[in-house]
Design a protein around this nucleic acid. Structure first.
Lengths: 149, 149
DNA sequence: GGAATATAATTAGGCTACCTAATTATTAGG
DNA sequence: CCTAATAATTAGGTAGCCTAATTATATTCC
């Protein structure tokens, strides 16, 4: 209670607020929003791992957003010719999403820039502290997650 | 380039994404949004430190949002009777914002709950790791901030 | 001292990134 | 084979921001 002035709490709070404003999530590139790039990245990575293309529901699970959110983003990517829908022949309710050559090129370029930036960060923090940070953030997530239930 | 698969980068990225979804910033309390509570908190803290009430521009600087954003939030808080505007007699362009008794009570209750939650977090992480986390987040912010210029 | 300029706040309108509820198409279970 | 479940979509809404334009007041400087 008197602990309301606890300096560690204060520091942590300030850091959280600042971190939220950190532009680590970039602004528009090539006319596409960060949320659109995230979907592109998921489709791209999925294609490198599996034989079948990603379903809307799979993308939605990976990004932890609802399916309507994914549908909307896919609609825009489709309009821009970055992505194609095909009906899954095994389950005609499902839709498989595939990158077009244009979409693939865009995604690869964005990924390159993105990973360079993050390699720079790991370099800046040092390998050890980077690992520590990831671990601590996971613990924070777990703490709040468990509070909510 | 081959470093694109650097596991530390991957871990860090996953942590960042997860952290962004962490509900550390709460949902509506008493019908007021997190952004509204942040403004209340700033006004409350300002009142404890200075003789004069907060101006819109001061609130805007502290929260790092534009003045129109603050104006809108103040409008809502005003409608709810949590806050009062008075014209600064020294500079009649400026508006001083003051908590009403109702606003003050609400803010105090919210602050209490809020700080208890964060004391719990510090307890969960340990004092030392909490400090480390704050420090690392600040470094991350600095890295991205400098990249942007 | 008055015109030009700067500053404080507000209004109007727009945007991103989400959400929920309802609908449509298809598949699976009793 | 009919009911219930599942996949995706459409429609509409919300929070939390933003920019540009406007209004009122202050400051500067010839």
């Amino acid at each position: 209670m008197a602990d309301r002035e606890n300096p560690t709490v204060q520091k942590l709070l300030r850091s959280f607020i600042q971190f939220r404003k950190t532009g680590w999530h970039d602004k528009k590139i090539n006319g596409y929003n960060p949320s659109e790039y995230k979907v592109l990245a998921v489709i791209y990575e999925g294609a490198n791992k599996k034989e079948l293309e990603m379903k809307v529901s799979e993308i939605s699970q990976i990004l932890e957003v609802t399916p309507p959110t994914v549908t909307q983003i896919i609609n825009n990517l489709d309009k821009g010719g970055l992505v194609e829908r095909t009906i899954d022949p095994e389950d005609r309710r499902a839709v498989r999403i595939k990158l077009t050559p244009k979409g693939k090129e865009l995604t690869e370029n964005a990924r390159k820039a993105f990973f360079e930036k993050y390699l720079g960060l790991v370099d800046y923090l040092g390998e050890e502290d980077s690992e520590k940070l990831a671990e601590l953030l996971n613990k924070v997530h777990k703490y709040f997650y468990e509070l909510k239930r």
